[in-house]
Amino acid sequence: MPRRDYEDDPNAPEPNSLVPAASVVVVGDDGRVLLQRRTDNGMWALPGGRMELGESLEQCGIRETLEETGIRIEVTGIVGTYTSPGHVFAYDDGEVRQEFSICLLGRPVGGDLEVSDESTEVAWFTPAEVDGLPMVASIRKRLNDWRSGRIPVVR
């Protein structure tokens, strides 16, 4: 389902839902980071998605990464929390979701790169290559926070 991201946009629609979610910065032994090109907006992004009932945040990040990229991971830390009320996602079905995402840090432990119904491409990138990729501001912020080593508590 297509989505539109709004960040600090006075013309953004009012949110009508709040859904806990996890995203994951997956870093290989060679320092490259795992990204997917999303089907809903065509942008490069971290793997991640909504948390389901009965699972922990860690389990959510592991499941979403496997589903969206084919890579099995272990969670090794946290990059930060991202809960800005000024960042909303508007979906075609009328849902307008306020951001509520915890970004985890992970490392690959197996699997093979695979696209899913949520991605058109999945690939590993050096941090320098990431700078030239099209992505929404909130994903770039998470990657920059990871690279800087800062752990933002509230964003």
Rank of each mutant, 00 (worst) to 15 (best):
residue 149 G to W: 11
residue 77 G to N: 10
residue 128 A to Q: 06
residue 100 F to Y: 12
residue 40 D to N: 15
residue 109 V to I: 13
residue 139 I to G: 07
residue 31 G to E: 07
residue 97 R to A: 15
residue 29 D to L: 05
residue 41 N to C: 14
residue 59 Q to H: 04
residue 83 T to K: 12
residue 67 E to Y: 04
residue 115 V to A: 04
residue 93 D to W: 06
residue 133 L to K: 02
residue 14 E to V: 03
residue 117 D to M: 10
residue 121 E to Y: 12
residue 150 R to V: 09
residue 26 V to M: 01
residue 84 S to T: 10
residue 87 H to A: 06
residue 97 R to T: 15
residue 138 S to T: 12
residue 3 R to V: 06
residue 43 M to W: 01
residue 31 G to M: 05
residue 146 W to M: 14
residue 109 V to F: 04
residue 32 R to C: 01
residue 114 E to N: 14
residue 116 S to Y: 07
residue 147 R to W: 02
residue 102 I to V: 08
residue 31 G to K: 10
residue 112 D to E: 12
residue 150 R to Y: 01
residue 36 Q to C: 01
residue 34 L to W: 07
residue 17 S to Y: 00
residue 31 G to C: 09
residue 62 I to M: 15
residue 87 H to F: 08
residue 29 D to V: 00
residue 77 G to K: 08
residue 20 P to D: 06
residue 25 V to R: 01
residue 30 D to M: 07
residue 44 W to C: 05
residue 35 L to H: 04
residue 75 V to G: 09
residue 43 M to E: 07
residue 78 I to P: 05
residue 2 P to N: 13
residue 114 E to S: 15
residue 90 A to W: 00
residue 133 L to T: 01
residue 127 P to W: 14
residue 110 G to T: 08
residue 124 W to L: 08
residue 133 L to C: 10
residue 89 F to A: 15
residue 35 L to F: 12
residue 95 E to N: 08
residue 142 R to C: 02
residue 97 R to K: 15
residue 27 V to T: 07
residue 41 N to W: 08
residue 50 R to C: 15
residue 68 E to K: 13
residue 78 I to R: 12
residue 29 D to G: 11
residue 70 G to E: 07
residue 22 A to M: 09
residue 124 W to F: 05
residue 33 V to W: 03
residue 8 D to I: 03
residue 44 W to F: 14
residue 39 T to P: 12
residue 142 R to T: 08
residue 152 P to V: 11
residue 112 D to H: 12
residue 122 V to D: 01
residue 23 S to P: 01
residue 117 D to G: 11
residue 23 S to Q: 10
residue 111 G to Q: 11
residue 32 R to T: 12
residue 25 V to Q: 13
residue 58 E to W: 02
residue 151 I to D: 10
residue 1 M to A: 14
residue 74 E to T: 14
residue 61 G to R: 12
residue 14 E to T: 05
residue 18 L to K: 14
residue 112 D to S: 12
residue 22 A to K: 11
residue 26 V to T: 13
residue 50 R to M: 10
residue 105 L to D: 09
residue 37 R to C: 15
residue 38 R to T: 09
residue 120 T to F: 11
residue 23 S to Y: 02
residue 53 L to R: 07
residue 15 P to A: 00
residue 12 A to W: 02
residue 89 F to C: 09
residue 48 G to T: 13
residue 82 Y to R: 07
residue 116 S to G: 11
residue 104 L to P: 02
residue 88 V to K: 03
residue 62 I to C: 14
residue 43 M to A: 09
residue 132 G to I: 01
residue 67 E to A: 11
residue 61 G to Q: 06
residue 152 P to E: 04
residue 75 V to M: 06
residue 144 N to S: 09
residue 10 P to G: 06
residue 43 M to L: 13
residue 96 V to Y: 10
residue 100 F to C: 14
residue 27 V to M: 01
residue 60 C to T: 09
residue 64 E to C: 03
residue 58 E to G: 06
residue 115 V to Y: 01
residue 93 D to F: 05
residue 64 E to Y: 01
residue 40 D to H: 14
residue 110 G to Q: 06
residue 101 S to R: 08
residue 70 G to C: 05
residue 54 G to C: 02
residue 97 R to D: 14
residue 128 A to D: 05
residue 112 D to K: 15
residue 122 V to P: 00
residue 71 I to K: 04
residue 52 E to W: 10
residue 135 M to Y: 01
residue 97 R to F: 03
residue 80 G to W: 04
residue 28 G to F: 00
residue 13 P to G: 00
residue 86 G to V: 03
residue 125 F to E: 06
residue 92 D to I: 11
residue 143 L to G: 00
residue 105 L to C: 05
